[in-house]
Design a protein around this nucleic acid. Structure first.
Lengths: 156, 156
DNA sequence: AAGAACCGTTGTACTATACAACTGAAACCG
DNA sequence: CGGTTTCAGTTGTATAGTACAACGGTTCTT
């Protein structure tokens, strides 16, 4: 296998396409297993809010290619659950800055721990080198795609 | 960077987790761009039916970790669109074997071409070696996960 | 000050999905 | 053989997630 470029590009691209698709199909079910207590997308948004140390709904929409109405409702859910709070921006009354509450940070920490454990388990047999290379490839793949403007043409 | 196992496992697992998640989040939107004419999941199922040269609804459910009711409705949609047909299995009257129609095969071919082009474009700058290795890693990752029994605990 | 641009909410509609209850067919078993 | 269990698929019901469109405040631009 280490011979030298024996595998044609076409075939590799095919495999990548197929496997990434397969992954995506199952991601949802997998996510639900890891943190069943939180409505999945809400969790993702909460994580982003936390990472950013507070952000606006519009930022979330832009980052995840979601409609602002979708984000609005997700945030409303998170607020109802007491996981985020909205702080009106003093300088711009249109904006509300979102912050995780104490409870939100807690939930997030727990979920992250679980998820992390699941990944650790799944990748247990991998060598450190393989892990590093796989991570690098994924990073490369994803950042390459981020450039496109993506017309938000989701199914409706 | 090629020094030797400088990157700790933990960090790589983190990156893999984050990037795979990011990928999954965007997969749906991306899929819609590539073949907007077909309801996404229906497309996936149709592709599977085609690959298998005919299969049962139960097979689809098992393969994609979907409830049979979900598959039933998806198949119904595909049938309504004239993309698949059901042939009662002669030996077992419970079973209906699904086959793509002419039109179904056509739609599938077009969508696949588009999707393939999108992947080719995205992976244009990659060397054949990198593609092969990335493909191998994805395959390894996904097949490792397939073993688990996965209690189908999807969000509802 | 008028209009444009922006932020977020709400109304409406649709897809994807699950679980539960059901019908019909086949297999098992005593 | 006849009863029970198992299997395949459908339908009822409920929910998450999403989009688009229309709207009400806010801020910026000219």
């Amino acid at each position: 296998m280490t011979g030298g470029a024996e595998v044609p590009r076409e075939a590799s691209v095919d495999v990548i396409q197929r496997e990434l698709t397969a992954f995506a199909r199952r991601a949802r079910a997998a996510a639900a297993r890891v943190h069943p207590e939180l409505p999945l997308v809400s969790y993702t948004l909460l994580a982003h809010i936390d990472e950013q140390r507070g952000c606006r709904a519009t930022d979330l929409a832009a980052h995840y290619l979601l409609d602002k109405s979708t984000v609005s409702r997700q945030v409303a859910t998170l607020e109802r659950l007491g996981l985020v709070e909205r702080r009106p921006a003093p300088d711009d009354h249109r904006v509300q800055v979102l912050h995780p509450t104490e409870a939100g940070a807690q939930v997030l920490a727990t979920a992250q721990t679980n998820r992390h454990a699941a990944y650790q388990e799944r990748l247990r047999d991998w060598s450190a080198d393989d892990l590093a290379r796989f991570a690098a490839y994924l990073l490369r793949y994803n950042t390459a795609g981020t450039g496109g403007s993506l017309p938000t043409g989701n199914p409706r």
